[in-house]
Design a binder for these strands. Structure first.
Lengths: 257, 257
DNA sequence: TCCAGTTTGTTCCCACGTTCACAAACTCCT
DNA sequence: AGGAGTTTGTGAACGTGGGAACAAACTGGA
């Protein structure tokens, strides 16, 4: 029932181009490449979009690639190349019209339309996500908060009531939900994921510290707080080793003296 | 005072190899390459570590690269190449000793030691982070929760009291804090970041939806929930366009019939 | 109209990351 | 001991991404 598209081809290994993400759809299959936008560029488009919104709020109508690049924290050459994948939306000798470019990027990403989202697992993190204004303000609408713990059900969090996980299928069908967020503990994440996929969800944002296996055609992006910290720790350790052969604690004290 | 090391070379653009991260330290400067581990590999080491811990908990003493790769959700060739940057910790014809490899990776990342961490901005997200067990269980110790809002100060969150942001410098000095987490609203993030850097913090995990500019020698990693969703939305939109020229909502209904 | 100045879009090249494929090295069985 | 089977570690090919540099295209002034 209500199964998602395309489960052919067997389980694909879960890995993508960038750090925390993974796509299972075939990168370059028989299908025509169309005007395929590089994954690295796609990951930066939302940053450009936010920068443009900030500029627009300041009343700036036009900007150069240099200005926008600075606002987005990237190289201007990279910015121009990224934008060139979308089309020629700038004017040579002048720059980019902020409102126009903003709309074009939003349309390309797909945030001009409204995306219904369900969040599963309303613990500490789920609460924070439910209340996070960045979701709702950027084309995403949380349509349901689900939790399997009856003690939590009925509680009101950010204008929504927590409902039973068993209502998942009905909610997905009713709202046409394509995006699900998993904020459960790690042990239940895979089960939840399977249910989401079976219900028709084809994009999943996973906060649980587990590797999810999904059928082909389903996208998973992972956000893992502890992994981010560990990466920082690695570099921090190297800094201490390289800069000062002594104790790093001591080094800072000496420098401040 | 208490300034961090190395502000030479001017401000570096904030961008890294992978999606959400950025390092400002020179990638390949005059310094010898030592046994430099590629950034992409570093980002995967924590995943391998977690997979090894899971295997160890199941009582598995030895595993092949194929098994470990599956558990980590990556290609076995990639896994072997990644591990080869650390050294030759496997045995040909046999595989890897789970406990031994686990220790080696933990040591390489630096999570055998204890990293003191401060969290700034104890709103919804800050609460969730303070209660997140994944932090404390993997070599990180939250030593302080800071917020500039007096109304929040004194509140107890996960065995710690929220303290005033003005105590930052004293806390950093006392505990030798090198890693800071920013969970404030976007407008105050840059100010907080500057204070952290000035106090001696050299690694920052940023949850605020803003581009932070930091001096050279300071690492910033960014976690942006809304950006992750937008990337999913982009792919979701493409799926709908390619798979079914009709209305995506309709397509699912038809398939389920 | 023409020329100087500005900024985009694009090409070329290099570095990095991924994957394949295979030699080296180990175990186990005969 | 020797050979078959297994698995690691790595060299080489391939693809993707980043950055410099430049031609194309626009504006504005003379």
């Amino acid at each position: 029932m209500t199964s998602a598209r395309s489960n052919r081809n067997g389980a694909a290994p879960q890995e993508g181009a960038d750090g925390g993400a993974s796509r299972s759809t075939p990168a370059a299959s028989t299908r025509a490449p169309e005007r395929g936008i590089p994954e690295a560029t796609v990951a930066r488009l939302p940053i450009y979009l936010r920068a443009l919104i900030t500029l627009a709020e300041r009343g700036i109508a036009t900007c150069s690639s240099e200005e926008l690049a600075t606002a987005a924290g990237v190289n201007s050459a990279k910015l121009r190349k990224d934008l060139s994948y979308l089309g020629s939306y700038g004017t040579r000798g002048v720059g980019y019209d902020v409102e126009y470019l903003r709309y074009q990027i939003a349309r390309e990403i797909g945030v001009t339309q409204d995306w219904p989202v369900v969040i599963v697992g309303i613990g500490n993190l789920g609460h924070a996500l439910a209340n996070y204004s960045g979701f709702t303000s950027r084309g995403f609408r949380i349509v349901a908060l689900l939790d399997s713990d009856p003690a939590r059900q009925g509680e009101e969090v950010g204008e929504l009531n927590i409902r039973s996980f068993s209502e998942l299928e009905a909610i997905v069908d009713e709202h046409g939900v394509a995006i699900g967020v998993i904020a459960t503990p790690a042990p239940s994440a895979q089960q939840v994921c399977d249910r989401l996929v079976a219900a028709g969800v084809t994009s999943i944002l996973n906060f649980a510290p587990t590797v999810l296996s999904v059928p082909d055609g389903v996208d998973v992006r992972k956000v893992d707080l502890s992994i981010e910290l560990q990466i920082l720790a690695y570099h921090e350790q190297r800094k201490a080793m390289n800069g000062a052969p002594q104790d790093p604690e001591l080094a800072r004290v000496v420098e401040s003296a």
